[in-house]
C-alpha cells in the first residue's frame, strides 16, 4: 500500500514541478544577462484564428490584458508590434471570431487591450496571446489567471529576430 502512496505523491510532485516550471519560465528571462526569447507554450496556439483585426476593445470589455514586448538579447522595447489575443470569456468561446482581437505596442513596447471577463474553461481560467508577424519568430502563449476572479493579466513577450 505504501508503494501505491509514494507513486501517487511522486506523480503529484511531478505535476506541481511542471506547473511551477511553466510559471517561472515567464520570469526567468528577466534574470538572465542577455535576455532570452520567450518560448511558445504548450497549447498556446489552440483555437488560433490568424489575422485577428486590430480593435479598440474586444466586445463589452471589463478585463484588461496588458503586457510588454521586447527584443531578445538587449531587451530593447519593441514599438508597433501586433499582439493577438483570444480567450473563453463571458461573451463567447475561444473559437468564436468575436472572442478574438489584436492591438499594437506603444513607444515603450507596452500593450493594453480591454476584453470581456475571462472565465474558467477546459479546467482553468486562461488567455491566449500570439505574436505572428514576419519580423520576429512566432510565439504563442497560454498564461493562466493566478485567480479565476482576476480582472487583469500581464504578459511579457521577448521576441527573437527571425
Amino acid at each position: 500500500m505504501s508503494g501505491v502512496n509514494s507513486t501517487r505523491r511522486t506523480l503529484i510532485a511531478t505535476a506541481g514541478a511542471i506547473a511551477a516550471t511553466g510559471v517561472s519560465g515567464l520570469i526567468a528571462p528577466l534574470a538572465a544577462q542577455t535576455i532570452a526569447a520567450t518560448p511558445t507554450m504548450r497549447g498556446g496556439s489552440n483555437n488560433y484564428r490568424p489575422g485577428a483585426p486590430i480593435v479598440e476593445r474586444i466586445g463589452g470589455g471589463g478585463f484588461w490584458m496588458t503586457g510588454s514586448v521586447r527584443r531578445a538579447g538587449d531587451g530593447a522595447p519593441l514599438t508597433g508590434q501586433r499582439i493577438q489575443v483570444w480567450a473563453h470569456t463571458t461573451e463567447g468561446h475561444e473559437r468564436d471570431p468575436h472572442s478574438h482581437g489584436a492591438t499594437l505596442t506603444d513607444e515603450n513596447g507596452l500593450f493594453r487591450l480591454e476584453m470581456p471577463q475571462i472565465v474558467p474553461a477546459f479546467g482553468q481560467a486562461h488567455g491566449h496571446l500570439a505574436y505572428d508577424d514576419p519580423e520576429f519568430e512566432t510565439v504563442f502563449l497560454r498564461p493562466l489567471l493566478p485567480d479565476p476572479g482576476d480582472t487583469t493579466l500581464n504578459v511579457e513577450f521577448v521576441l527573437q529576430p527571425a
Binding site: 511553466g22 504548450r42 497549447g43 496556439s45 489552440n46 477546459f122 482553468q124 497560454r142
Partner: peptide, 14 residues
C-alpha cells in the same frame, strides 16, 4: 485542439 492535446498527453494541464 484541447482534446487532441489531452489524448496525446501533450496538454499543458496536469
Amino acid at each position: 485542439p484541447d482534446v487532441v492535446d489531452a489524448l496525446l498527453l501533450r496538454s499543458p494541464t496536469p
